[in-house]
Amino acid sequence: MLNWIVGFTILIVKLGVVLLVLLLLAAYLVWLERKFLARLQIRYGPNRAGKFGLLQPIADTIKMLTKEDIVPAAADRFIFLLAPAVVATTALMMFAVVPFGSHLTLWGRQIPLVITDLNVGLLYVFALSSLGVYGVAMGGWASNSKYSLLGGIRGAAQMISYELALGLSLVPVVMLAGSFSIVDIVNAQAKYPFIIVQPFAFVIFMISAMAESKRIPFDLPEAENELGAGYHTEYSGIRFGLFFLGEYVHLQILGALVAVLFLGGWRGPILPPPVWLFMKMIFVALIMIWVRGTLPRLRYDQLMALGWKVLIPLALVNIMVTGAILLI
């Protein structure tokens, strides 16, 4: 009984800490993105709120919290209200299986530095990521606006397409690690990170991940110059904030997944494991921002062609090659 209570407390504390870090990180990821992007474009980026604009995320949060929450008269109210929550929760829940260290020993208790080590962790991630699509589609549909609807449809189509490539690109990793558990995958990289043996998988995963999180150059669902703001055109205030949050949590998740699956996860010399993981995540994020700062948006047909005609075949070939090598 006592054991049970302590375990539960530890879980709650872990959850709290992770959630806090995640949300804070999401906010500052926005700051980082704006700053870094600005520098890529020879600008300053936010520099008015606090030193280096460091208070900007807080100002933005306050702004979004205090803005009027508008529900369009013609919207399907229930779904409209639900959609942003779906996006944000699915994104947050994905982090449950990402390990940020091996374990901590406190008062003689071993505390694994992962919220829960599912043996099908990777599948869990994919499942939630697929659920996230619902948020987008629901938001787009429920707004009862043509822009939103188009954005929602695009989002759904794009995310489903790239989910495939995303999944397939990881099959070799699973093959190498021999497990779906992310903890196991990290452990499998104890000697060398998988990026070294699986560069193709890494590239495919990166590209698919960017498409999955609807980031430039794959931001067709919210293409400003065509669709207003796409599926979240009609959202305002904190509900828009939830979409926004979902997007940046997603970015973190993907950063973390890249780190965990290809870059050895929390492993690294000298510094404590969570710091390594953090650094790797940031590194992945910076690369994604760099891509954003460099590449223009794809056309819809290009997007689809890239997914179906390039990435998926490549991933399949990669699986076969990996399989062949493993057999040999």
Binding site: A38, R39, L40, Q41, I42, R43, Y44, W290
Partner: peptide, 14 residues
């Protein structure tokens, strides 16, 4: 990518 990367080290023109 090289172009944008180089920008990182330029003084902003703002």
């Amino acid at each position: 990518f090289a172009t944008t990367f180089k920008h990182l080290f330029r003084k902003p023109i703002t």
